[in-house]
Nucleic acid binder design. Structure first.
Lengths: 176, 176
DNA sequence: GTCGATCTATATCGGGCCAATATAGACTGC
DNA sequence: GCAGTCTATATTGGCCCGATATAGATCGAC
């Protein structure tokens, strides 16, 4: 799922500037499955323009750089659908936290507890955001995708809460 | 969590060649939190050698290129622990599947059903592999990390099975 | 028994992407 | 009135993936 495809997908819903695309990736129903940085979006839009998959119109602004508003073309729509029809690449999950947990024996116990608390807090926050986003009326598709993420986050949280790998719990479990 | 750090972590457990590091990332208790390609591992090991964080000894082999066996140095151990003590970067989840689901309206219904089936099958397989890996005796840390992944996968599966976004279910849900 | 496939093992390259940085005016809160 | 954040574009360095190349070993199938 390269950034060009992500841009095309977002533009199938509405025209947007590069900046708006970035915002939609972060806030829309796309979180947390996709990400894209400015350093990827702007070159992607240039390439898409060259390939005639999007068109640009510049909106002049006083004392500011022009807003470049991108629209998807018919060729772009076809290319987008074609790329979704190709076998999808696998999901990727990367967790520096889980990796660090594997080396808990090399770290101070107190620091482990801190990392765990921070991770739990962060996951709670992400889940709350998803629930909040889901409260607004949405398309069935967005609800489906959002629910899938919520399910995974909720299960992770429950697991962490009941299996806290800190001093007290370790002692308690050993005593069972 | 860059590839240099991943290499250092694996080398804290045992000496290894670049090839063996790759295998351990794929098969060990590291799946599915981390990944690294050869194109990242070999340059990472060169840089680590230059920085004196690992040392190499070449094992000559007849009619084959030398096996280059890497060992972590004391400086390497210190650098590794230091990098785990720094605030960790956030987890990243990327799902081309979930992204594609958001554009279900642009795709043939039959193709959606296929993608869903493939995704479910794939997730089942990943979960089975984790369960199998967990059956062997492991350290408590590895068990903890493995369990966290299992929880997330299992919840995702359950969600997908009960919310299948295909024709029949959609009709059935609409009738409720 | 021999032929294709898979495994061990190294390495490079193009292209894609992230994080940081630069620029610059407008708006918001204190 | 000024600090911080927001809109908006863009570039750069460096990291990383996927594909590709090389090459002998081993192993199962037929």
């Amino acid at each position: 799922m390269d950034v060009r495809t992500i841009c095309l997908g977002i533009l199938t819903r509405a025209d947007a500037t590069g900046y708006e695309i970035k915002k939609r990736v972060e806030e829309g129903g796309y979180r947390p499955f996709v990400e894209a940085s400015f350093g990827a979006i702007y070159p992607a839009l240039n390439k898409l323009t060259k390939d005639r998959f999007v068109s640009v119109r510049a909106e002049a602004q006083e004392k500011r750089p022009d807003r470049k508003i991108y629209s998807i073309t018919e060729a772009g729509r076809r290319a987008f659908v074609a790329s979704l029809m190709k076998p999808l690449t696998e999901d990727r999950h990367r967790s520096p936290f889980a990796f660090a947990m594997l080396f808990a024996d090399l770290l101070p116990e107190q620091h482990i507890a801190q990392m765990l608390d921070a991770y739990i807090a962060h996951t709670e926050q992400a889940l709350a955001q998803l629930q909040q986003a889901d409260a607004k009326p949405k398309s069935q598709r967005e609800h489906f995708a959002n629910g899938m993420s919520q399910a995974a986050y909720a299960a992770t949280l429950e697991y962490l809460r009941s299996h806290r790998l800190n001093g007290e719990t370790r002692t308690a479990e050993a005593a069972e």
